[in-house]
Design a binder for these strands. Structure first.
Lengths: 199, 199
DNA sequence: TGTACATCAGTGAACGCGCGTTCACTGATGTAC
DNA sequence: TGTACATCAGTGAACGCGCGTTCACTGATGTAC
């Protein structure tokens, strides 16, 4: 049977899921365990049947966040035409939907400065997550035959991360969406991808 | 005389200064009023002779942080040759010293995601601060005769903000400095500034 | 299949702690005459 | 210049609150025979 084990596993996954969600939205310090466990439908004392400490949860949540980003990479950057894939990846990564929903988007634009203040496993996982994105972009650029794909990929990732971060800060209505449009155009243009948009 | 007023003014400035320092280092939520007032050499109850609330201090500190950035802009981007000024601005903004000392650097790479979660004055000031940097870069690009300086300036600011943020996350020794070198080269290259480096 | 006991995910109350904020008080500074 | 009173930046203790963590307990699930 293992009915108990199955329920525990489900609870465990739900806690991580909810942490990944609300920490991207409010920052890693922005959610209390009490609220979090209530959202999962459990009482907050039960948390310690799953994690030894809050820090351990943060590390688990970061891992979970990058799994979502990895899925995105798999969708756009692993198979198919590299130029077309990268074009679509950029459109997705810098979409207005992503701007409005950090809770289900790549953690890099929402949590990087916090990550730079972390230590141990959480920090390492975040850093490793960034490397995964960089490597995937570099691979596409190399397949496209571009010069120095490693450096160019870094540059592109910097711009995309910065663009989403700053687009989220904009207060004026429509300004965030406008900044993202600029970023998409600029990134595509310098990768020679702008012609693809006219098909 | 106004000896009392002078002392109050000094204390007020010290509180903002220390807040601007430690909030860039640890995040706006990363410093308590008690520790902060101790660093200023006062007891923490005295805080409320200067600010109505902690939020008010955050707004004041953000204003202070951008004053430092504005000074940087004045130094590099207002007078003199625009290309040379921008070249030096990029070198400074993306220097390894800045990476190692967020406490005395531009708040954009260290606090933007937090800013996107703020409301009211603090949020508006942060957003206005970003605009100041963007406008200054755009002005230089226009003076250099580049196409669509507004969009290009956004793109460059995105990349610089993202580069510094991610360089600070890197764990491996020397990796952060390396990422910044890449970013400086890439930004200069796409602005046609790389030739200036050989003088 | 039925009974007796063991396990352990989850409950819910309590813990100490640091937080932002309040407040009665102090004593140096400032004002009035 | 001297005296009496007012001001108020700063003190230091206390406040309620939410935090992460602990713990005695429960009762459904699992195991042994």
């Amino acid at each position: 049977m293992a009915k108990r084990a199955a329920r525990k596993e489900r609870t465990h996954a739900l806690i991580i899921e909810e942490a990944a969600r609300s920490m991207r939205l409010h920052g890693t310090r922005g959610v209390g365990l009490s609220v979090l466990m209530k959202r999962v439908g459990r009482t907050h004392g039960g948390f310690y049947a799953h994690f030894a400490s809050r820090d351990e949860l943060v590390a688990a949540a970061i891992e979970r966040m990058f799994e979502a980003t990895t899925k995105l990479i798999d969708r756009y950057l692993v198979t198919g035409d590299p130029a077309r894939g990268l074009f679509d990846f950029i459109d997705h990564y810098l979409s207005d939907a992503v701007r409005r929903h950090p809770e289900r988007s790549c953690p890099i634009p929402s949590l990087s400065p916090e990550a730079s203040r972390m230590t141990g496993l959480a920090r390492e996982r975040f850093s490793a997550g960034i490397d995964i994105v960089h490597t995937a972009i570099a691979k596409s650029l190399r397949a496209m035959g571009l010069d120095d794909p490693e450096s160019l990929a870094q540059s592109v990732l910097f711009e995309m991360a910065g663009a989403m971060t700053l687009a989220r800060v904009a207060v004026e209505e429509g300004r965030g969406a406008e900044l993202l449009r600029v970023a998409r155009d600029q990134v595509k243009q310098r990768l020679g991808l702008d012609a693809l948009g006219q098909e």
